[in-house]
Design a protein around this nucleic acid. Sequence first.
RNA 1: GGGGCUGUGGCGCAGUUGGCAGCGCGGCGAGCUUACACCUCGUAGGUCGUCGGUUCGAAUCCGGCCAGCCCCA
Length: 869
Amino acid sequence: MTQPIERQAADVDLPTQYRPADVEGKLYERWVADGLFAADPARDPSRPSFSIVIPPPNVTGSLHVGHALDHSIQDVLVRRRRMQGYETLWVPGMDHAGIATQNVVERELAKQGVSRHDLGRAAFVERVWQWKAESGGRILGQMRRLGDSVDWSREAFTMDEPRARAVRTIFKRLFDDGLIYRAERIINWCPRCLTALSDIEVEHAEREGELVSIRYGSGDTEIVVATTRAETMLGDTAVAVHPDDDRYRHLVGTEVELPLTGRRIPVVADEHVDPSFGTGAVKVTPAHDPNDFEIGRRHSLPSVTVMDERGVITVHGPFQGLDRFEARPAVVAALRQEGRIVKEVRPYEHAVGHCQRCSTVVEPRVSLQWFVKVAPLAKAAGDAVRDGRVRIHPPEMAARYFAWVDNMHDWCISRQLWWGHRIPVWYGPDGEVLCAGPDEEPPAGWTQDGDVLDTWFSSALWPFSTLGWPERTPELERFYPTSVLVTGYDILFFWVARMMMFGLYAMDGVEPFKVIALHGMVRDQHGKKMSKSFGNVVDPLDWIERYGADATRFTLLRGANPGGDVPVAEEWAQGSRNFCNKLWNATRFALMNGAHVRGDLPERLTTADAWILSRLQNVIAEVDGHLEAFEFAKACETLYHFAWDEVCDWYVELSKVQLNDERAEATRRVLGEVLDKLLRLLHPIVPFVTEELWTSLTGADTLVTAAWPAAEQALVDKDAETLVESLQRLVTEVRRFRSDQGLKPGQRVAAALDFAGSPLAAHEEGIRSLLRLTVPAEGFTATASLPVEGVTVRLDTAGAIDVAAERKRLEKDLAAARKEVEQTRRKLGNADFLAKAPEAVVAKNRDRLAQAEADITRLEAQLAALPAA
RNA sequence: GGGGCUGUGGCGCAGUUGGCAGCGCGGCGAGCUUACACCUCGUAGGUCGUCGGUUCGAAUCCGGCCAGCCCCA
């Protein structure tokens, strides 16, 4: 009658536990070798396109858990579109990370006692390329471990030849349009890296410092200023007060003596002074403070530079040659000696800017630098979002975007480094300036500007430079604008706004991406930021090794609510690993029992079959909707719940009975169908385990390009869902009884089932199987009787039942039912409620009341039937 | 100083337009029931930060307060 299960089981060669390491590397290499991730702009133009450019990781970096999240999300999007039949392109690559890379190589040289200046510029740059070839870009190999379905044939680097061409092209265009200029401004300067930094390369951190109040002038002209940077007073060229401040009105326009220097400096009135801070008077050092620089410009003040590029004091005998941090106490001591110190607050907490790459305290410095005039570009970047051409997801994040682009300062793009795109400007013998485009040669003898461009300048071109711009390539034609940009909200300003500005500018107003999908930061299980010093850093490669790439991805995606931070923990990775193992074993069970996907679904379905197929349709629709909306956490949750709690815990259990009778063949087909669709839905999230299982189940080559499932309305069966829900309540209730009575889960118990006309009668076998209830023999006497879901289960507990436990249970349920009745009655007795609440809500409450009343009747009868204790 | 976010069972999070508080992990109890102990079954645990308002009805809307976090200056 039934197929010989033993024989089929022998055909199934799957271990009882899923071992990711056995399959992941093998599958990935096959995917790449088969060209499944390769995009072809010429292929079937009728198909829609879907493209993503990867936020290029730093060439010096390795895969951290933040990348793992970012990449997992992109991979889900790309893999789903691929299955939906889109021509998909996911471009991989790296950025050259000017300062970081130069620092790495300089550090290496330093070990040999060599500086970059010893080598000279050309040899040093050569050396960096060599470093890149040997030890750069480790992350690319690590991306394979995670399963990134990128098109490796299109790997790009922000410093390679095509990208260099793009940089030269756009620089020339911006220059010719007057959007790039050179000017002497105060910029952020790193005295260790010896280069300018843009605003966003400076990290502000609270530090303990000091606030020293110094008396300038004397007698009638006395005025006290407070500062955290006493050493800069050597470069003061004014004292500023608010124009409406009566305390100082009489001093405005006069001069006061600047201590230690013997100079006299003016007192000026400026709106930007906060009269409520300190004494309401501030010292003005235009050469060493950005705010003071502005005040200086407004009042035509001279600018006195007191430090060199390394932060060493260059003026005033006793201080000359001191580092800025040595000079500070020295200056304070000298002032104290002169009786100039009025007050000292120590420690004084205040925000200090640090170099993002080396953590050195940034020194504002006046110098000649190149800038991008951002106003018109930023306006366009803002408008693209305001007009809805580019959608920021989640939408709440748009406020932060606008706050940034609408208040952007001109962007300092020159860096005093050797590693980077050299500024394509040449100077002639008579001070002529020439910007040369990609195919232009400067006149012989002219010298090129020594600076290089900010790395972000080239990464801002990424969405189109990777597609071949400035040529009008088929790639650009087909894949620009890219479909979505996936990145953390922390670099919305760093990078996204810049790509928007340059994309709109270079591509004649066409935006670089249609959607900006933002995710949060990965944090530990207590919401703490991961940091090496805290010791709570998760290494994704460690997780991949121990739990598998799929489990790593699932853990991250399961926590990925739009825009929200993603907490992760070891236990959750284990849970994800367990989930993968559950899928493995469910499929293993199915295969051992001959499940398959051949042919149509059976004509005749049992209620269990109809139920799981119906649920499957709901799940398909739900998951599809979640993924479309970037709701990765919800998609994972839905799939996890369906696979584990519905397919495994109920359908597989019910199928065991069906596989033993004439329904076996139909059941094999339904099992196959459910797993087929489930594995397809899960594939973008957990590609490896699903590929391995699905190819075993179907015999097909790969799931990577299999069709994405669509829900079929015809398979939705509300009646089956209702009936199985009833069955589940019945089974759960009897299990509770068994547990209360101390019956072991596996223990067989004789029971008689009286269905009294319930449609559940058709599922007697399934119910008996789930509950381990055997058919009673002759002379059976029940020791307990349970009325549930219209069915009476009478069972022989093989001994006296625990009346006390049963009474306790029934009384608990009774109390809950009574509370329910009371609450619902009160509601339904409220005339306002009946008058104002919607019909459906009222009806729902009536149903609840009826249900609760029926429960009370039943429970009271059961209690009455209990023998006295 | 400006702007933003968060506060729901021990921990981490969901809760769409207001209409029975859910999930995962962990805890407790029982079990190796021929897919899986990376498992199964059962179970405990929350007046949704706080005070007030709107409403027939508030975790959900409005306001004050408290606590914590982030970004920008």
